[in-house]
């Protein structure tokens, strides 16, 4: 079992004249109305979550939901109003400025929505920048930067300036820069939303390829649910500063905790999201047929077989034991009806 890398507990961020005083003066957890009437703008409200080592946690929500603020609180770019941010077991909100700089220089990397490249530096110098500020000597940092530039597929463009690159290429530079110091935690703030849809898809694949190699602990912000499903291990859906639900994509679709989550997940293509287990009917124990499908397979991968079969198809677990059956009708219901079987 993997361990917790990054976590926050009862994290709050309010904007206003004296937010922490206001929050301390509240008897319990103030509602959103109380906060607004008090003259404060709630950005993050009482968020508690954990990110496991090597996990991709996607925080997803519409604009104004507080997802970017949450990310910035986790990276301590914004000072939270209340709560704790635990990184590798220590509360980084208690870290001094010097310690924080040190943590960022060695353990954190961040990718920005609009790339945030330095316009006066070449690709190589942009990527080498985090190494330069921590004092790595020129030869070493350039060698490392070349390595990372090659990793993101920009070999040959080292001498270019950001404005000479396309949006997708610029974001590759942003990714390379965030990876230069070999961080443990990787923050991505809507990294692909400023890109065209085709490039976006290509970059998502690129991102997954990199993650397979590097196995970072990732907090990934997006407003695009399709993107969330593609990259996430777990998804947190935010609304009005609160995490409405946190779980795997499948859990969100099959067991939405709130009407908002249900509304969100309604039009998601279920065949690439639901596994056989989620829609199968239970079966009495007997020897499974040889044509049986695996319980954790996605519906898309078994659809052809199930739909062309007259009889329900047997479902087995990883050990080969029969756990249920999947009929043509229940498959069609799962894919094409608005209501998802609970």
């Amino acid at each position: 079992m993997s361990e917790t890398k990054l976590a926050c507990r009862n994290l709050w961020k309010l904007y206003g004249s004296d937010p922490s005083g206001f929050l301390r003066g509240q008897p319990g957890t103030p509602s959103i109305e109380t906060i607004r009437v008090g003259g404060y703008i709630p950005a993050v409200r009482d968020v508690t979550l954990e990110v496991m080592t090597g996990e991709i946690l996607v925080v997803m929500g519409l604009s104004g939901s507080g997802k970017s603020t949450l990310l910035r609180c986790l990276a301590r770019l914004i000072e939270p109003t209340a709560g704790e941010v635990m990184f590798e077991g220590r509360d980084i909100l208690a870290a001094s400025e010097r310690e924080m700089i040190d943590i960022r220089r060695h353990k954190m990397g961040m990718v920005f929505q609009h790339f945030a490249l330095l316009p006066h530096r070449t690709v190589l110098d942009n990527v080498a920048f985090p190494l330069q500020v921590r004092g790595t000597d020129r030869q070493k940092r350039e060698a490392r930067a070349r390595e990372v530039v090659e990793l993101v597929g920009l070999k040959g463009r080292e001498g270019y300036y950001p404005r000479e690159l396309s949006g997708g290429q610029q974001q590759r530079v942003g990714i390379a820069r965030s990876l230069a110091v070999g961080p443990d935690v990787w923050f991505l703030d809507e990294p692909f939303s400023a890109l065209d849809p085709l490039i976006r898809r290509e970059m998502q694949d690129e991102f997954l390829r990199l993650q397979q190699m590097l196995n970072k602990t990732i907090v990934f912000i997006t407003h695009d649910f399709d993107e969330a499903i593609r990259v996430a291990d777990r998804i947190a859906i935010m609304k009005d500063g609160v995490v409405e639900q946190l779980g795997t994509a499948e859990e969100l679709v099959t067991h939405p905790a709130t009407p908002y989550v249900a509304e969100f997940t309604r039009n998601v293509p279920h065949d690439r999201l639901l596994s056989v287990r989620a829609v199968m009917a239970p079966a009495s124990s007997r020897t499974p047929e040889t044509t049986a499908v695996r319980a954790h397979a996605l519906l898309a991968s078994v659809a052809r077989q199930v739909l062309s079969s007259e009889r329900p198809v047997d479902v087995v677990d990883d050990a080969g034991m029969l756990v249920g059956t999947l009929s043509r009708d229940s498959l069609i219901d799962a894919l094409y009806s608005a209501e998802v079987p609970a």
Partner: peptide, 21 residues
């Protein structure tokens, strides 16, 4: 842009480095 400033901060810039670089 605030993002560029944040990029500097996340790279581990001190205040002086953020201003100057």
């Amino acid at each position: 842009a605030e993002e560029v400033r944040e990029a500097g901060k996340m790279a581990g810039c001190t205040r002086f480095q953020t201003l100057w670089m």
